[in-house]
C-alpha cells in the first residue's frame, strides 16, 4: 500500500501530526476530560485561566495534572475577556503559570450573548502580545480583511469562527473561510461552531489546516465516541482536500459502462 504523505502542520515553528485541537471545558469531570482528549489524538489542548478558588481543598485535582504539559502542547486562552487589556493580562498570567510558555490563543469577545469576536480589541491585544514576544493564535470573525490584517501583524495562526461559540451550527459561511484559507500563509483553523464530525470534515475539505473544538465532544451523548469521530473526520477531511474532489455535474454520469448491456 502506498504511504500517503502530507505537508507538516506547523504552529510557531513546531510540527504536529494531529490537526485536531481540543478544549478542556464542559466535561463531567477530569477523568472524562483526560479520556476524551486522549481519544481525540489532539496534541494541542486549550484551557482557561481563572481566579483560584481560595476556599478549596489545596489537594483537589488540578487540570494540569490531567493534561500534563509534558504530554500536550498547552494553549492558554483568553476566553471571557472583553477588552484588549484583560486579554493581555490573562496571557501574561498564563505565561507565568506555564514557566515562560509563549503560545496563546487570543480571543476578545464582544458580548456574552453572541461571544462574537470584538475585532477592534482583538487587533489591539494582538499588537501588544506580539510586541511582548507571544506566539498568538487568534480567534476572529470570518472577515478575510481582518484575517489578513492579523496575519500581517504576525499572528502565527488565524482562527475564524464557523458559527457562534458553543452553538454547534457548523460552518455558516464556508465561502469566507475558503477566502481566508486561500489568502493566508499561516495556518488557518476553524475555531468555533463545530457541532458534529461532518462539520469538522467540511472545515478540512475547505482547505483549513486544522480545527479547534470543545463543546462538540464534551456535550456529545458519548464524548469518547465523538472524540474518536472528530479525530477520523479531521483526517478524512484533510485527505479529501489533498485528493481534490471530483467536479460537480448538473446531470448523472453512470459509473458502469453503457456498452455491453444485455438490453443493448
Amino acid at each position: 500500500m502506498t504511504q500517503l504523505t502530507d505537508t507538516p502542520f506547523t504552529i510557531a515553528g513546531h510540527d504536529f501530526s494531529s490537526r485536531l485541537l481540543v478544549g478542556t471545558g464542559k466535561y463531567k469531570d477530569f477523568t472524562e476530560t483526560g479520556a476524551a482528549i486522549a481519544q481525540s489524538g489532539a496534541e494541542i489542548v486549550t484551557f482557561a485561566v481563572r481566579r483560584t478558588n481560595l476556599g478549596q481543598d489545596a489537594d483537589s485535582p488540578n487540570l494540569l495534572d490531567v493534561i500534563s504539559p509534558k504530554r500536550y502542547t498547552l494553549l492558554p486562552n483568553t476566553a471571557g475577556c472583553y477588552t484588549a487589556k484583560d486579554a493581555v493580562r490573562t496571557c501574561r498570567l498564563a505565561r507565568e503559570l506555564l514557566d515562560g510558555h509563549k503560545l496563546v490563543k487570543l480571543e476578545v469577545l464582544g458580548d456574552d450573548h453572541t461571544l462574537y469576536p470584538n475585532v477592534v480589541e482583538t487587533l489591539k491585544a494582538a499588537e501588544t502580545l506580539l510586541a511582548d514576544g507571544f506566539d498568538v493564535m487568534v480567534y476572529t470573525s470570518d472577515d478575510p480583511i481582518v484575517a489578513r490584517e492579523l496575519e500581517a501583524m504576525g499572528c502565527c495562526a488565524i482562527m475564524p469562527l464557523g458559527s457562534l461559540i458553543g452553538s454547534g451550527h457548523g460552518i455558516q459561511n464556508p465561502h469566507n473561510v475558503r477566502l481566508i484559507v486561500e489568502q493566508s500563509s499561516v495556518p488557518v483553523l476553524v475555531d468555533a461552531g463545530i457541532g458534529t464530525a461532518s462539520d469538522a470534515a467540511m472545515a478540512m475539505e475547505l482547505g483549513c489546516d486544522g480545527v479547534l473544538l470543545n463543546t462538540a465532544i464534551a456535550h456529545a451523548q458519548d464524548p469518547l465516541r465523538m472524540a474518536n469521530a472528530m479525530k477520523l473526520a479531521v483526517k478524512a477531511g484533510r485527505d479529501a482536500f489533498l485528493a481534490g474532489r471530483m467536479p460537480r455535474r448538473q446531470s448523472a454520469d453512470p459509473s458502469s459502462p453503457f456498452a455491453g448491456r444485455i438490453n443493448g
Partner: peptide, 10 residues
C-alpha cells in the same frame, strides 16, 4: 492581588 490557575475551557 490576583492568584490564578488553569481550568477547563475552550
Amino acid at each position: 492581588v490576583e492568584v490564578v490557575h488553569a481550568i477547563g475551557g475552550g
